[in-house]
Amino acid sequence: MNPKVDKYLEQVKLWKPELELLRGIITSCGLTEEFKWRNPCYSFKGKNIVIIGGFKAFCSLSFFKGALLKDPEGVLKKPGPNSRSTKLIPLTSTKAILALEPILKRYIYEAIAIEASEIQVKIDKTDELNYPEELRAVFLEKPEFETAFKKLTTGRQRGYILHFTSAKQSKTRTTRILKCESRILKGFGFNDCTCGLSKRKPNCDGSHKQLENK
């Protein structure tokens, strides 16, 4: 058991009994307990397998390569419409967890076998990055900006693209692109910490507001 997870469970306000039960089930499958991204995370030979956490409506057991699980029980859900690899099982009570325990363990063991085989999630061509016209226009004007953008990880590129394309008007999309230009040139993702104060690096936790208030 990891002491950081002990501390997390002592302080958590929502879904504490459920998370403690999930912890016991997962560790009984032989995974190593770690604390990553502010949540209990479980790995096999250094490779992430599952992570647990609580939301307002449910707690969850999330599989990093859930897209590769067979899911005959139909319990896996996508965390969001843009999720490519991760899938989770939403849970709302200890009773539900106990009822699903054999299934949870079976899925965990399958996830371990997938990781041990080094199988990777294949991204369909339809999931390839689709640069908006406004971004392509900026690329033409600023080749160094295009180079910096394409050096970002696929996930970081996708995060920016979602931010840009969520604007309805072309003018707003261009404004958003230019506003993010300096971050991109420095190699930062849309949600990355740029001030160095965040305790959740590389993510920003709002610590930069301390500088704004001085």
Rank of each mutant, 00 (worst) to 15 (best):
P79D: 14
K47E: 10
S28F: 02
L140N: 14
G187P: 12
N130K: 05
I114K: 00
V121Y: 08
K214C: 06
E141T: 15
K168C: 10
R84G: 09
E134Q: 10
K125S: 13
K171Q: 12
E134Y: 13
N191I: 04
K168F: 14
K7N: 13
L211D: 13
Q210H: 15
F188W: 10
A96E: 15
K209S: 11
L91N: 01
L185I: 05
L91H: 01
E181T: 11
K70N: 12
K45V: 07
R200S: 14
P40L: 03
E133T: 14
G206Q: 06
L98S: 07
P40M: 04
G206H: 11
I103Y: 15
P72H: 11
R84S: 12
P202A: 05
D124Y: 03
P81C: 06
L61I: 10
S166T: 15
R23G: 00
R23I: 06
D124G: 05
T86A: 09
N191K: 12
T154I: 09
F55L: 10
N191E: 11
I49G: 01
G30F: 13
E146C: 07
A148M: 14
G206C: 05
I26R: 04
T32V: 10
T27N: 04
G66M: 02
F164T: 00
Q120P: 03
T86F: 01
E33H: 09
I26F: 01
S62H: 07
R156F: 08
G155W: 05
K214L: 04
P202T: 03
T27V: 11
E110K: 11
L98M: 06
G46E: 15
P143C: 03
R176T: 13
G80R: 10
A148I: 01
T172C: 07
N39M: 14
T174D: 08
I184S: 01
E73L: 02
L211N: 14
E133D: 15
I89C: 01
K36F: 06
R173Y: 09
V5L: 00
V50H: 00
I25G: 00
T92A: 12
K151S: 13
E18I: 00
I49L: 02
K168H: 12
I119K: 13
G74R: 06
K150W: 12
N203F: 15
K122R: 13
C204R: 14
D205R: 01
F149W: 02
G53V: 03
Q120A: 08
S93I: 00
E134L: 10
Q169V: 05
S93C: 05
L88Y: 04
S117K: 15
C59T: 15
R158D: 09
K199D: 05
D192Q: 06
S43G: 12
V75I: 15
F190W: 14
S62G: 04
P143W: 15
Q210P: 08
A148G: 08
R23Y: 02
A57C: 07
I184A: 03
L31C: 03
G74W: 08
A148Y: 15
L91C: 05
A67D: 11
P3T: 07
E118L: 11
P3R: 09
P79A: 03
K78Y: 08
